[in-house]
Design a protein around this nucleic acid. Structure first.
Lengths: 223, 223
DNA sequence: ACCTGAACACCGTTCAAGT
DNA sequence: ACCTGAACACCGTTCAAGT
């Protein structure tokens, strides 16, 4: 009933929504440099120029894609204390950033933020204000948290391993390199930590996150 | 005596060093998308293909450029306490990142870090280890600091103003937009803070930095 | 040894046209 | 209204050749 398919080729009409979703999926699957107007159109079974009826240019395509990514981040819940709410939102942000690694450097550098971005920002600020943070302290709290979250995801993206097991393996090779090149502390830290237990991104992320939230809690009333 | 110039056109021979320096200068001046092999060659008064005798491809050109950026970051001084040393290094990193905005997303995502990157990493780890941080705590301390520094610089890069005066001006327009679109907290925070005093990146950066360093100091011995 | 032009397989986007 | 192919001004890079 819904969406009748004519003949063998599905003839779903194009739409901005459909184009944006396909663009996100393509970037997720093949990486950011693989996202070209031509390939995207092909993915949709259309000519390259058809896209330009829904999106003025590639830059605004990116704006739309980024706002989809923002929309996937859970808003901070309003029925728990601010610390729990901020913690959950931070963890959700990191998850989404890992799901869409190409988005990482672009999220905060778009000149045209979309509605999902505004809604999230507004909710986070609201959470802090309602918890009794002064306006000044809200700005501080927001800045530290987001710098940390996006910065962590940025470094995480680049490390040459995904799991603790992998990291332990890679680490042994690195240690030899470091020792041979006179980087004693790099060798020591990698040998004594990463190579032994592996590097667990999730727990590392939460360590720093809790450190920051603890510190914010203490400063909430002092400004 | 040094570097005799033949005729009117300087005939300085190409070299990897010279190419990398010119590439950094070009990206600084005209932005990252303006950095093409063709334009870079032109900047050096050479044919595009000449570059390939010194750099195997554009990707390795970027690796070299990034390591130049790393080399500009001051190593943490060894004759002061760790907190002062880390603070100075963080401030120097932010300065360098602002000088080379194009580098920001790339610094930690290169697959082939260069010697300047290793040297800096080694020095920072050394600073923490010598200050009595356990290996485990050194990893934590390193991760929080760098996530914060790079994340802050990332957001700073994208904000649509450079000085507190500019920010105050932009803020007034934004507040009207936020109120019209039902983002009450965004409106409140921007009106009550940014529009009033302007947003000062340097002091915002140092607020978060000190918050993190304070927290690390307290945890140094507890792990 | 050091440099280079022509050429190839790509880009994003304009324009004038198809149904 | 919705879609498109040819064409333009770009890319990075290969290759075969110049001095």
């Amino acid at each position: 009933m819904a969406r009748p398919e004519r003949a063998t080729k599905a003839r779903v009409p194009l739409s901005k929504e459909r184009i944006l979703r396909a663009a996100v999926a393509l970037a997720d699957r093949d990486g950011f440099e693989s996202l070209t107007m031509r390939k995207l159109a092909q993915e949709l079974g259309a000519g390259a120029m058809s896209l330009y009826h829904y999106v003025p240019n590639k830059d605004e395509l990116l704006d739309g894609m980024i706002d989809i990514v923002f929309s996937e981040i859970d808003l901070p819940p309003t029925d728990v204390d601010w610390r729990t709410a901020m913690r959950q939102r931070a963890i959700s942000t990191r998850e989404v950033l890992n799901r869409h690694r190409w988005a990482n450097g672009l999220m905060e550098s778009r000149t045209q933020p979309g509605p999902a971005s505004f809604r999230l920002h507004d909710s986070v600020l609201g959470c802090l204000r309602e918890a009794g943070f002064s306006i000044q302290m809200t700005v501080h709290a927001y800045s530290v948290q987001d710098s940390y979250i996006y910065g962590f995801a940025l470094q995480e993206k680049s490390l040459p391993f995904e799991t603790p097991e992998e990291s332990a393996k890679v680490a042994e090779v690195m240690v030899r390199q470091f020792l041979a090149n006179d980087y004693p502390y790099l060798a020591e830290v990698v040998a004594g930590h990463v190579a032994k237990v592996g590097y667990d991104f999730r727990s590392e992320f939460e360590y720093g996150l809790d450190l920051i939230l603890d510190a914010l809690e203490k400063r909430r009333d002092t400004g």
